[in-house]
Design a protein around this nucleic acid. Structure first.
Lengths: 156, 156
DNA sequence: GATCAGATACTCGGATATAGTCTGTCCGAGTCCCCGCGG
DNA sequence: CCGCGGGGACTCGGACAGACTATATCCGAGTATCTGATC
């Protein structure tokens, strides 16, 4: 799992705190977390393409949340960053080589190993889909005030 | 997730079917699934180091299961292949940059984002730990007979 | 017949090569806003 | 006072380089079994 997930989630939470302040430029976000500006931009563009953020051009432009924090799940962010593919990829090796001889009848049924791994991944996804950016905000309420204060001091 | 997980699981199930036939050489396993022999060997060595397989040297040597299929979980195999590290790594970016100013009090508590991701990973691990090689065998009982038959034909 | 040396087949561990992905940087193009100039 | 045009700030999309990991191969060393020669 790339670090883009961590970056994206922190940025989403921060953008949620700063909703009233309008778009936040990529330069400020990079300074905020001390991250490489150009690469962070690339990752946030992926969130934009996924419809989680909106980017507004122009001198007062930047990134903002595209919808309410309650409607952005961790799953949304992870999928935008890492793609929809499962971590475990079944390449059907059971159908190859000397071991597969005379097993055609079994191949009608899905591979039991792939099914087992898929069950685990579904549990993971279900857990991610059950939590939203708003839940993360509720977990650290004192951060709201501090975030706005630090952001106001950041004119530059 | 590397393909070693898929290879390892299929090999474990096959070795479980072939327990009575003694150790299975890496050459036969590679032929069995049409996999690159040398690299498969390297991955199975990881399973051996993890105590899931045993390797016996000598002309009649090869790999065997180190314990009963009921006592080998999918989690064991995944950990042996991929390591114990979580997929999501929290690098504590909340403590860096301009956004962290004056937030020292919050840093006593664990990062909410890391905690949320960890919950999801625990659900994944729990699901993997709940399934064993024996469960996979029960899922495709007709494979037992076929596996032994194909293996017997494989003298060479 | 018993014992030992060599051959064989296999694993182990390390070294190395190759491919692909993740991370990071850079640049040209497009867009919006601000400001000043000219009517 | 109003409208037009230029410059600045920002995003977008793509191209590109470097680091790291997964994949794959190869080799030397060790070990157990078998064979055959020797006593």
């Amino acid at each position: 799992m790339g670090e883009g997930v961590e970056w994206g989630l922190h940025c989403c939470v921060t953008l949620a705190w700063l909703t009233d302040e309008g778009p936040v430029s990529i330069r400020k976000l990079a300074t905020w977390f001390d991250l490489p500006q150009e690469y962070l931009k690339k990752r946030l563009q992926a969130l934009t393409k996924a419809g989680i953020l909106t980017s507004t051009p122009g001198v007062r432009g930047g990134f903002s949340l595209a919808r309410a924090p309650e409607r952005i799940t961790l799953m949304d962010v992870v999928v935008a960053m890492e793609g929809t593919e499962d971590a475990f990829q079944c390449t059907e090796i059971r159908q190859r080589g000397a071991g597969a001889v005379g097993a055609d009848a079994e191949f009608g049924r899905p591979c039991g190993i792939a099914a087992a791994m898929r069950r685990a991944e579904l549990a993971w996804r279900r857990e991610l889909a059950a939590q939203t950016i708003a839940d993360l905000m509720a977990h650290a309420p004192s951060a709201a005030e501090r975030t706005r204060r630090n952001y106001a001091r950041m004119r530059g």
